[in-house]
């Protein structure tokens, strides 16, 4: 038994992994990944998919979205790094890819800053209208009139419903 394990370790141990990860090269010096790498990545992707689904059933509260996104990012990095070979690609192609993510992040962050802080003006104005109704009917979702949306569009939507 032990001898078998030993043999297995010698065959598939760190040296083997190193050799597999090193891969080969085509006539232009481009990297060719070894087959086991692809299968390993595929296995990892399947496991992570199961994990995402499982996480969605476990009630993690406010953590569930970050955890789901983290798993998705790990999956995406595996695909990008190994299936798309970005790990072995030229630095400029890496820059192009991450550059596009940076600019996307700029878009997201600025708009989210606006969405998050847009209520302040509304809040200030509401301080002046003493008789503003507090009944839930008024914060009914959807079909917000254009007048309301001047300060945050659908922000009146169903911010207070649900949870």
């Amino acid at each position: 038994m032990l001898a078998k394990l030993q043999a297995f370790y010698e065959k598939y141990g760190p040296d083997y992994v190193k050799e597999v990860l090193a891969g080969e090269h085509d006539p232009y010096g481009n990297h060719i990944s070894a087959l086991p790498v692809y299968y390993a990545i595929y296995g990892a992707l399947l496991i992570l998919t199961v994990l995402t689904v499982a996480v969605s059933y476990a009630d993690l509260g406010p953590l569930s979205l970050p955890v789901a996104m983290l798993v998705a990012i790990i999956k995406a990095s595996l695909v990008v790094g190994y299936f798309m070979h970005l790990k072995y690609d030229t630095p400029f192609n890496v820059l192009v890819f991450f550059g596009s993510l940076v600019f996307l992040a700029i878009f997201f962050v600025f708009v989210m800053v606006d969405l998050n802080s847009r209520g302040t003006l509304v809040a200030e104005q509401e301080n002046f209208s003493i008789h503003r109704a507090q009944d839930p009917a008024e914060v009914k979702p959807a079909f917000v009139t254009p007048k309301n949306s001047d300060h945050g569009g659908g922000a009146h939507g169903d911010k207070k419903d649900g949870h």
Binding site: F107, F110, V111, D114, R118, P141, A142, F143, V144, T145, P146, N148, S149, G152, G153, G154, A155, G157
Partner: peptide, 21 residues
């Protein structure tokens, strides 16, 4: 679909963000 059109629950300022980006 109510992304940009306030009559359908969307946000016209969001359109301006998209457009000017």
């Amino acid at each position: 679909i109510g992304i940009f059109d306030p009559a359908m629950g969307g946000d016209p300022v969001l359109f301006q963000h998209f457009f000017w980006f």
